[in-house]
Write a protein that binds this DNA or RNA. Sequence first.
DNA 1: GTCCAGGCATGCA
DNA 2: TGCATGCATGGA
Length: 273
Amino acid sequence: MIIETRNSDLVLRDVKCLSLPLTLDCGEAFRWEEQEDGSWSGVAFSKFLNIREDADGNFILKNTSTEDFEAVWRNYFDLDRDYAAICEELKKDSLVAQTIDEYYGIRILNQDPWEALVSFVISQQNNIKRIKGIIKRLCEAYGEELAEGAYSFPSAERLSALEVADLEAIGAGYRAKYIKRLADNVAAGNINLAEIKAMPLENAKAALLDIYGVGIKVANCALLFGFQFVECFPVDVWMKRVLEYYPDGLPECFKGYEGIAQQYLFHWARNNL
DNA sequence: GTCCAGGCATGCA
DNA sequence: TGCATGCATGGA
């Protein structure tokens, strides 16, 4: 990857295996919106970004400093991981090979732990369209406006100041009480997400499973998308259908990158099963 | 009207 | 340990 500045923009050349529509709209992050010009706008780590891919396959990050790129976006888009090589290994499995050929460019985003955890608590027994709506209303009501119509994901402290009824009012449904208690515990320091992120996987998973409203599926999604455990393999109703294709368990070639294989299979399942 | 969605807590055996 | 049930909401 080559990084260049062009006026106030940042240009990434020679990026392997990155599809913006597939990565930003495949159900791992819920806050990216495609613009009329084909670019994508979103917020992560309280930074607004507009990004697009040009005709030559370069990625243009609008109004982005190299400081913000190094501090946020390089890791957010997982740009230091060799997806081309990982995909080659994963393609030893025939079904994944088919999904990678069809959906090449899905990456695992390294999101903020707090945002990922709350987002996947909201995701339970829910559909992606509605999850996006709830999170959008949550941010617009309680986040900080970073740019015209762009809001940060509200902090634990901010959400802790709310009542359960406030969270029900944005459409969170029965998950409102989970969000409220989680926000209270994080704001009070009873739950330390940075510490959890630094733990070995099994300890981190156990810590998340102790949280009210977090079960094995939500924990695995948070670990994969928010805590950088790329070996996690979340199983939801879609992945249960996919697992019927693997009666003997996951193939050896998934080892260490189960989460990446999972995201390709998840996207395939939603389009084909 | 019923069924389903990136499930979980609870009660019970 | 495993299984049945209730849960908020909106789209199909």
